[in-house]
Amino acid sequence: MPDDGILLLARASGRDLLMAASDLLEVLPAGPVTPLPGPLPGIAGVVLYEGEFLPVLDWGALPGAGGEVAGATSMAVLKRRLALPLEFLSGALEGGREGMRIEPPGEDPWAPFMVCACAIEGPALPLLDPDKLIDWLHQRRTSR
């Protein structure tokens, strides 16, 4: 099992999810997102980050969207230069997936961009795979 280090527990698009802290550059307070001047699947717009434009994920474009979604309070910046708006960040789990129950993504609508589903107790949560997520976004672009 890979060493995930710290896992962050967050809520986005009405769902709880896990992210490996090692996949992130930082978590920032959410700011206004400037929409792009044309439709782009999966991208809500851009924010200015360290002097450069940073695309912001549109969770609503992901499969399984449609639940009640609160406004974003923070924004996780992936190392692969994509911002993920988060409704809130609820905690951090040290030790990664150690001691957790690991399940395959199965029928989860987010399966195309999950590493796996993990749980200590209660329902398993999706662990986000940034590479798969970005590949998925690229595929959406090219298949337009």
Partner: peptide
């Protein structure tokens, strides 16, 4: 400033 690839919109240079 250029747009990153994920945010490139047809017709927009940056």
């Amino acid at each position: 400033r250029s747009l990153p690839e994920l945010a490139q919109v047809p017709g927009i240079m940056g």
